[in-house]
Each structure stands twice: as C-alpha cells, then as structure tokens.
Design a binder for these strands. Structure first.
Length: 279
DNA sequence: CGCATATCCTGACTGC
DNA sequence: TGCAGTCAGGATATGC
C-alpha cells in the first residue's frame, strides 16, 4: 500500500515538520512496532536528540539524528505517520503505537492497525548514509535512476513474472503491488510475462514506464485506495488513484482500448491488467 | 542460487 | 441485520 510515491510524500512532509526539531519525549505504546531492539533502547537513543535530515530508500523512511544514528521507519501495510499540534492531539487515534513529542510542542505519531509497520534506530551507517540493515535493497528509481541496462541485466534469464520481479526489493527498491501493475500497463506488458522473455525494446519500455509512473505518482502525492488508509503527514489523501489504468479496476473498461480490465491471481496475490493493451 | 508458499495482522467487504 | 468467511499485501522465513 504505501509504496515509493506515498513514502516520498511523507518524507517531504517530514522535512518541514520534524527536521531541526528536538525530540523531547518518546512513548512506545504498541508491543510489535519496535522489534529489532527493545522499546526502552529506542527511546533512550531518541530522547534529547535532534532530527537532522529526512531521507528515504525504497519504502523505508530514514530520519537521521544529530549524533549520526538514523531512525528507520517502515509503514508496511497500514502504518500512518501523522504530525499533530494543539487540539488535534485529542482524542488519540486507536492503534497509536508511538508518540514523539517535539521541542515546538507538536507531536509525530505512528498509527498502525495491522501492526506490520516497524521502527528501529540504526548506528551502522554506510558511506551513503544507508543503514546496514537496508544493504539488501536494490536501486531506488527516484534517487539513483533506473537505467535500462541495469533492468536488462536483472531480468535476463529470469523465469519469474514481471510483477514478482518488479516488487522484489533486492532488485528495485520501492515498487509494490499498485505501481507494479501500473508500470506493466504503461509498458504494454502483462505482469505474468516472464522476465527473461522480454526483447531489448520491451525492457526499454519497462524502464521508461517505471520512471514515468513513479514520477507522476509522486507528483499526485501517491494513491489513496478505497479505505483511505494512506494519508500524508497532515492527514491529506493522494490523488493518483484517479489516474490508475488497471489497479483495482477489474471489470471496468480500459480507458485506452475499451476492453475490460482483468484481475489475475499470481500465487496468492492479485494482478490487474488490460488484455487488449498488454502482451 | 531461484522460485513458490506460508506467516504476521485488522478492517472492509461478501454472501447467506 | 448479523455473522462467518475471505481478501488485502509489505517483508521475511522456510521448503524444494
């Protein structure tokens, strides 16, 4: 759900909301959010520090601190970061698992009904500012681009379907279910096409489509689905869902060719495609 | 190694 | 209207 465009939108919000602010107090209310270290250790390492920068790698948010450690946050399926001030702080939303009080009297809160989301503080940072725990991530298309040659090398000889490969974070960091389907549509390729079956021209279209879809989705501040679970730091929804060509549109007409959008089952996951447009 | 499958979880939806 | 069952999918572990 929150994928690269949504996480990038939240990151931009954090630049204005928390960068430069002092962390006055941290309360960990949920039992599952902090699991790589004890909640007490996370609290100790955050309290008294200042947020220095707001970064992102794939779907991970990276909030660096003034002692060079980094607070890593992943929203997973249902996590929301909210920046609240004054009367907005009450009543506290159900499933609020972390509350960070900032020096200016505002709060950064983490709300996450399904408790898949995660917070941890890392001190093991590589030369590019990336925590060691995230070393497995592949290229981030927004930060580092997605050259056709890189994609071609990673797809060569692969039997797995395009959707499975595009959402593999070790290959490309940041793409999830929604954008994999939208990228395949824009490239006119079926999500169940095997990676190794693409011609050079098709790999070029796929790389181009990935860059374009992610760029457009960031410009639209991400996609908020029917449950409106995804919201930015200020609680605002995104608008890219209005431009989805196939995702969650099973049975509706393709706006390009008029054919009916289909929903496939790939393993346990859904994939949407237009059979008229995608080969 | 590559690929498939199961797991975590709650809320929204579906069908009776 | 209520209730049981299904689905949603991020990342990770495990099995082959």
């Amino acid at each position: 759900m929150p994928e690269l465009p949504e996480v990038e939108t939240v990151r931009r919000g954090l630049e204005g909301a928390v960068v430069g602010r002092r962390i006055v107090e941290v309360k960990v209310l949920g039992r599952r959010t902090v699991r790589r270290q004890s909640p007490a250790e996370l609290v100790t390492r955050l309290e008294g520090r200042k947020f220095a920068t707001a970064g992102r790698r794939g779907k991970f948010l990276l909030l660096s601190l003034d002692d060079d450690a980094v607070l890593v946050v992943h929203l997973r399926m249902s996590g929301q970061l909210l920046h609240l001030s004054g009367a907005q702080r009450w009543p506290m939303a159900p499933h609020t698992h972390v509350v960070v009080a900032l020096g200016d009297g505002t709060e950064l809160r983490f709300v996450d009904p399904r408790t898949f989301g995660e917070w941890f503080v890392s001190s093991e940072i590589d030369g590019r500012g990336v925590p060691l725990e995230l070393a497995h991530l592949g290229r981030d298309p927004l930060l580092e681009g997605l050259p056709t040659a890189y994609l071609a090398a990673r797809l060569a000889g692969r039997r797995a379907g395009l959707k499975a490969l595009l959402t593999d974070q070790r290959m490309i960091a940041g793409i999830g279910s929604i954008y994999a389907d939208e990228i395949c549509f824009r490239a006119k390729l079926r999500p169940d096409r095997s990676g190794g079956s693409l011609s050079a021209g098709e790999v070029t279209s796929l790389a181009k489509a990935a860059r374009a879809v992610l760029r457009d989705a960031v410009a639209s501040r991400g996609s908020s689905l029917r449950d409106l679970r995804y919201r930015d730091l200020d609680g605002e929804v995104g608008s890219f869902q209005e431009r989805h060509a196939v995702y969650d549109r099973a049975g509706e007409r393709c706006r390009r060719c008029g054919d009916h959008v289909e929903r496939l089952k790939i393993g346990a996951r859904a994939a949407y495609l237009c059979p008229g447009c995608q080969l």
